[in-house]
Structure formats: structure tokens, C-alpha cells
């Protein structure tokens, strides 16, 4: 039987530990993808994704069902990422950028475009493009990046984004517009004739 998120939360509140497992398994990929989009590093993404679910485990009783479970979860995810980035910035010499992602053991070639063909040149071009986009996304400010990632990766509506970030629709519009414009400028030389 497929339970809704809210039913699982309710069951967990009633002491059903298995519900927590089901929630984790339902959302682990999405949370990981969002975290990876924000931090840009696999090890950190794994660590922070687990931190998100540890917090879910601790604070799920505080979820009152006023909003959808996933907006609550994504808010938690963004908070975990932003506070981790803030801590990292305060540690001298630990500012992470995708430009030096190899230092953290990430293989730049592992992000691949879905429409990759078998032509070696195209594969190379697509990988280069993917890396360029990844790097451009990572260069955005934390707030712009998290708003952009939730919109593009999770396709959250503007209404849902206002609930996640607790701000007005105008702010969301402005953030997305700025994020896209910055990305466009960064990858403008690659845009013509690529897609």
C-alpha cells in the first residue's frame, strides 16, 4: 500500500519506525540532488543529506501538517546547506568552489547530459558543457543558488518556493531572474549552436 507523506508522518508519530524508513527512501534521491546542486561536492552532499534526515528524525514531531511535507523537508534541506556553507566560510582555507572540485575527489565527467550521443566529440562537448553549467550554478550566491536549484531541479512552483523560503512571490521572481541572467552571461559564449 502506498501511503501519502502526511500518512507516513502520522504513522511515525504513532510510533511506527518503518514509516521513517519509507519517508527517507522516498526523498533521499531528491534531497541529495538538491544538496549536491547547492554544495557541488559528492562527499559533502552525502554528509549533509544525512544531516537533513537526522534533523527530520529529531524534529518530525514539530511538523504540524500546515504545509505539505516536502516543502517542510526542502526548507530544512536549504537551512542545513546554508548553515553548512556559512560554517565553511568561517573556516579559513575551506571555501569550496567547483573550479577545484578535483581536490575533493569529484570526477567532473560524472555529470552527464541526458541526451548524450555515442559520438566521442559530442560526449566531450556535452561533458564540457555540463561542467560549465555546474560551475556557473556554483558561482551563484547561496540564496540565488538554492532558489534556482529548487525551481529547476524539483520544479517547485513559485507558491511553494514562497513557503520554503518564507518570502514574497516578488522576491522569488527577482531571485530567479537574477540567477538566470547571471547564468546566461556566464555561459553565453557556449550557448550559440550548442543545443
Amino acid at each position: 500500500m502506498q501511503y501519502s507523506d502526511e500518512e507516513l508522518v502520522e504513522r511515525y508519530g504513532a510510533g511506527d519506525g518503518e514509516s521513517f524508513r519509507m519517508l527517507v527512501e522516498r526523498y533521499q534521491d531528491r534531497v541529495y540532488h538538491i544538496v549536491y546542486g547547492i554544495v557541488g561536492n559528492k562527499d559533502e552532499a552525502e554528509d549533509l543529506s544525512q544531516e537533513v534526515f537526522l534533523r527530520v528524525y529529531r524534529f518530525l514531531h514539530r511538523f504540524k501538517g500546515k504545509s505539505r511535507f516536502y516543502t517542510w523537508l526542502y526548507r530544512l534541506t536549504v537551512n542545513v546547506c546554508l548553515s553548512a556553507r556559512r560554517k565553511r566560510k568561517n573556516e579559513p582555507g575551506k571555501i569550496f568552489s567547483l573550479a577545484d572540485s578535483s581536490k575533493y575527489g569529484d570526477d567532473p565527467g560524472e555529470i552527464e547530459l541526458a541526451d548524450e550521443s555515442f559520438s566521442p566529440l559530442k560526449v566531450l562537448q556535452n561533458r564540457e558543457m555540463a561542467e560549465t553549467i555546474k560551475s556557473a550554478i556554483n558561482s551563484l550566491s547561496e540564496v540565488l543558488k538554492s532558489t534556482f536549484v529548487l525551481r529547476e531541479f524539483e520544479e517547485l512552483s513559485y507558491e511553494e518556493l514562497t513557503r520554503v523560503f518564507q518570502c514574497s512571490k516578488g522576491t522569488i521572481k527577482s531571485r530567479l531572474s537574477r540567477a538566470r541572467e547571471q547564468l546566461r552571461r556566464k555561459i553565453e559564449p557556449y550557448l550559440n549552436g550548442t543545443v
Partner: peptide, 13 residues
Amino acid sequence: VHRLVQSIQPEKP
């Protein structure tokens, strides 16, 4: 830009 970002395969743990 939107299409390119959409075409990036999602990362999985």
C-alpha cells in the same frame, strides 16, 4: 540555459 540545466542527469546517493 533552462533546457541545458534540465538535461543534467540528477545526482543520486
